[in-house]
């Protein structure tokens, strides 16, 4: 079985994305052997008041138990503390996505630290995408900013006990392992869809250095095709036990489901 930590629903305004409707997305995932998924609402990138996107997502997920909802909030916008509480207690969200490149703040800012701290106190993992789409092909109204894994790593070090899932990031061991081969950022978890596998054995090296618990299968659907992500894990050279953890256990464990 496979659990996908990185899927999205909702309309993307900058190019046509097939299967962005949640029912079509489920079908797309199931056809590839995926048995469950964490999902974010793309509208959360664009709504000024992104709590509305969380309400939309909660309604969709309540009718579709295949998915686990991940909220999106902007710590620059009023009442995010109240919204976070509602997302956890009433809407059943199991994670919180932060998108500073869309919402206009930096990870070193006070507001970012505050929301990470609040979410960590509530036991909620935070998702941070390095990018949503490849900025080399971005629409002229879209952001051109990507977030470096080291910036996210330093952000995580600022709040003890925080857990951050880094998505859409091409990570190399040299960025996240020290010279002693120990993890530089123990609170980071890495989604696998952009980690090279067969060439250079990067995924296996990361598993060895970080521990298999810190790698989580993700596809990036429906923005991206799914088979490339499946091939990465399949041909990673990891043990069956490690592949099982990456493909199924870790995603569910980190979300507490």
């Amino acid at each position: 079985m496979i659990f996908d930590i990185n899927t999205s629903t909702g309309h993307w305004p900058f190019r046509k994305v097939s299967n962005e409707n949640i029912g079509d997305l489920e079908k797309m995932l199931v056809e590839k052997g995926i048995g469950g998924a964490a999902v974010v609402n793309t509208h959360g990138l664009f709504y000024k008041n992104c709590q509305d996107s969380n309400l939309e997502l909660a309604e969709m997920v309540s009718k579709n138990p295949f998915f686990t909802g991940v909220a999106t909030l902007n710590p620059l916008y009023p009442a995010w503390e109240k919204d976070l509480d509602l997302c956890i207690k009433d809407l059943g969200m199991k994670g919180l996505r932060l998108v500073p490149q869309y919402h206009g703040y930096g990870l070193s800012s006070h507001c970012a630290r505050e929301i990470l701290s609040a979410s960590s106190s509530a036991g909620l993992p935070v998702f941070i995408p390095s990018r949503v789409v490849d900025v080399r092909q971005r629409h002229w109204m879209d952001t051109g900013q990507t977030i470096d894994v080291r910036e996210i790593g330093n952000f995580s070090l600022g709040v003890a006990g925080s857990r951050i899932i880094v998505t859409e990031c091409a990570i190399y061991a040299s960025q996240v392992l020290g010279t002693d081969n120990k993890p530089l950022y123990p609170g980071l978890f890495f989604e696998t869809s952009r980690i090279s596998s067969a060439l250079g054995r990067e995924l296996a090296i990361l598993v060895k250095g970080l521990g298999a618990d810190h790698l989580i299968f993700g596809s990036g659907a429906p923005f991206k095709e799914i088979t490339p992500a499946l091939l990465r894990v399949k041909h990673s050279g990891c043990t069956d036990e490690e592949i099982r953890k990456i493909s199924w256990d870790n995603g569910r464990t980190v979300l507490g489901i």
Partner: peptide, 13 residues
């Protein structure tokens, strides 16, 4: 162009 899994996977999909 060096992206091995990407190369095979996107053709298969």
């Amino acid at each position: 162009d060096g992206g091995m899994e990407e190369g095979i996977g996107k053709v298969l999909d």
